[in-house]
């Protein structure tokens, strides 16, 4: 189980990355920022390696399947998508401040996966219902959706923090956060990407459910909560595109949206339903 060892190191690396991003913003020294990016990249590469290794190991155990089959594996993949997406955004926007708000999410998810006593890190065989080609596309689309909503959540926090900044203030941390309209635009872009991915995730899930359970929609709690999340983000997009809502309102709504995402991901496990694999 070398993959689990690498993954627990990754948890630590993401914490260091968070610390470096924070240092960069508090001290305002770009050197720490570059170091933080390097650390995050090291974490991402190590994690990708561990995921591939885990995939290979499952084949060596004779129960080969993509490492997306239980809560442990899904948390690992969630972290991977959020860091991957963040790296793309950092590279595109050439701005590192978002890292301070995203790496803690990654670190927390990894720490939860590694240290929570209820979570089994063993590679388990797939139950018949999960043996489907749709597993990979369903999980990838859903988690990219979750990751984009996670970034939108982080951007909303930044937006609300930036509101406290005034030209008179000399707070380096706040000064480094990009201007409000840039954050707002980026936030909206993340919501749009997340919405498209969530839509794809729900559709692939429906197609899969149709072949596994015979019904493309059964109002199972996880299905219903994904629909709730979809409805919330749909209303955010409508209020922005048609009613012109911006800034603070969108930031608050993105909070609500991300809470729904979290409930779809974790909270639903406390309700009975068909999606009991991810417990």
């Amino acid at each position: 189980m070398i993959n689990a060892i690498i993954l627990s190191y990754t948890t630590f690396i993401y914490f260091i990355a968070f610390f470096l991003y924070l240092l960069f913003m508090v001290m305002g020294r770009p050197f720490f920022g570059r170091l933080a990016t390097a650390a995050t990249l090291v974490g991402l590469v190590a994690q990708s390696f561990a995921i591939v290794l885990r995939w290979i190991e499952s084949y060596q155990l004779g129960i080969g399947h993509a490492p997306f089959s239980n809560l442990y594996e899904s948390l690992i993949f969630f972290t991977w998508t959020i860091i991957f997406l963040y790296m793309v955004v950092e590279w595109k926007t050439k701005n590192r401040t978002l890292g301070t708000f995203v790496t803690p999410l990654a670190f927390l998810a990894m720490a939860y996966a590694s240290f929570s006593p209820g979570i089994n890190s063993k590679i388990q065989p797939l139950v018949p219902a999960l043996k489907s080609n749709w597993l990979i596309s369903h999980v990838i689309t859903c988690f990219f959706g979750y990751a984009a909503f996670g970034l939108s959540f982080a951007l909303s926090i930044m937006y609300l923090l930036k509101r406290m900044d005034t030209p008179q203030k000399k707070n380096m941390f706040l000064k480094l956060i990009p201007a409000q309209d840039i954050l707002d635009e980026l936030n909206y872009q993340m919501i749009v990407i997340g919405f498209l991915m969530l839509t794809l995730g729900i559709i692939t899930g429906s197609v899969w459910a149709h072949s596994a359970w015979g019904s493309y929609w059964s109002w199972d709690p996880k299905e219903t909560w994904s629909l709730i999340t979809w409805l919330i983000y749909a209303s955010i997009i409508h209020s922005r595109l048609v009613r012109g809502w911006k800034g603070k309102k969108i930031a608050f709504l993105s909070f609500v949206g991300f809470c729904c995402v979290l409930f779809t991901y974790f909270g639903v496990n406390y309700l009975a339903g068909l999606h009991s694999y991810a417990k």
Binding site: W219, T224, L231, I232, H238, L271, A272
Partner: peptide, 24 residues
């Protein structure tokens, strides 16, 4: 009106929440 759309979307979301809390 899109105001109605947003209202309906939010009502549907809230009703669905209720549906997951009350066993169906």
């Amino acid at each position: 009106s899109v105001k109605l759309t947003v209202t309906l979307l939010i009502i549907l979301a809230m009703v669905s929440v209720l549906g997951t809390l009350i066993p169906q």
